[in-house]
Amino acid sequence: MWVIYTLNGLYFAALLFLISLGLNIILGVMGILNLAHGSLYAIGAFIAAWVIIAIGMKVPPFFLYVTLLSGLVLAGIVGFLMEKSLIRFMYKRTLEYQLLLTFGVLMLLEDVIKMIWGGQAYYASAPFDLLGKVDIGGHVYPTYFLFVMAIALIAGLFIWLFMSKTKLGIMLRAISLDREMATGLGLDINRLSTFAFVLGSGLAGLAGALVVPTTPALLGFGHEPLILGFIVVVVGGLGSLKGALVGSLLVGFTRSFGIAIFPEIELPLLFLIAGIILVVKPEGLFGR
């Protein structure tokens, strides 16, 4: 059974990595903690479920997996609109206003989701069922979970290469290190911030879309991932990509083994471990 628990841990970690990566990019580059991040995740889940249900079995199976990208696209678009219309005015404001604004957006988006998709659950398990199961060391394991891990790995590598090798990535890192200096060097802060916000939002949407074949999309879908994403960010350190990776693995494994061994207190256990890490290392594992 330990093989399965380990794989489940990796699967949880993969999803959390996508969520907290987005949260961390936005936090690092813009200094804003996006409380509406969970809603973007939910939007990604709903649109993917909706598209999969709408096109059903009419398309070749390969295309079904491409539709999962709809979550990334729509969440990115919502993120774009959000940044252009509201977040933009918040860079010079104090923390209270930044947090409350995203809290307002969260409430707004929750009800927009309710208006569009109503209160019912959306089942879209086709991509999950189609992949079937594989045999791993004598245990049967859904192939789809492995697919999710692969996607998260690719996304992580992509972001890492992007941030360390491309000019755009280096500019984003420059902003996160010293916003004022970056402006002084002539970087177009506004455009880059929009880009970072869209990227972060898209990653949340992608995570939501990847989840929806395994669990139905419901109202309040993004609440728990948001909190887990926060724990990852806090444990890993604010604005650190390495921290997001290690934090996700830690939270993922704690969850998977916690569910297996102490199902009642799996979530409190997670908080306990996070609390101990913070008391020992207040700035998080890889915090600056």
């Binding site: 936090l27 200094g31 903690l33 923390l95 947090l99 909190i227 926060f230 724990i231 960010v233 806090v234 604010l238 009642e264 207190i265 979530l267 409190p268 908080f271 306990l272 996070a274 609390g275 913070l278 207040p282």
Partner: peptide
């Protein structure tokens, strides 16, 4: 209180969710 600003906010939030999890699960 070992932290300020955004870290303080997230930490206070996470700890309140710890209580939530306990109240909810037990």
């Amino acid at each position: 209180v070992r932290h300020t600003k955004i870290f303080f906010s997230i930490l206070a939030l996470s700890l309140s969710m710890l209580l939530f999890a306990l109240l909810f699960k037990l």
